[in-house]
Amino acid sequence: MPYLLRITLIALALLGTVSCTNKPLLNPDRTLHASIHSDRAQMQQAIVKTLVARGWTVQKITPQLVQAQITVREQYHAEIDIPYSADHYRIQYRDSSGLDYKDGKIHKNYIRWVRLLDKGIVRELKDDQNERTAKQLSEAALIKP
Rank of each mutant, 00 (worst) to 15 (best):
D39G: 09
S38P: 02
N27H: 06
P83C: 02
I82K: 02
S96H: 10
A78H: 03
S85N: 07
R90C: 08
L26W: 02
T57F: 07
A86G: 07
Q42F: 00
A11R: 08
M43S: 13
T71G: 09
T50V: 09
P83S: 03
I61C: 08
I80T: 07
T57E: 14
I91D: 01
L4R: 11
T71M: 13
L25I: 14
D95H: 11
T71E: 15
L51V: 03
Y93L: 08
D95A: 15
R30S: 08
D29C: 02
D81W: 04
N27R: 06
A41D: 14
R40H: 09
R73P: 07
A34N: 04
Q92W: 00
L5S: 11
H88C: 01
Q67Y: 00
T50I: 09
I61T: 15
A46V: 01
R94A: 15
I80P: 05
T71N: 12
R40L: 12
M43E: 09
A68S: 10
D87L: 03
T17P: 00
A11K: 09
I70S: 12
P24S: 09
L32K: 00
I91M: 01
I47G: 05
T31A: 08
T21I: 15
Q67I: 02
V72Y: 13
L14D: 05
Q44A: 15
T8Y: 04
A68E: 05
H37F: 04
V72N: 11
Q64P: 00
Q45M: 12
Q69I: 05
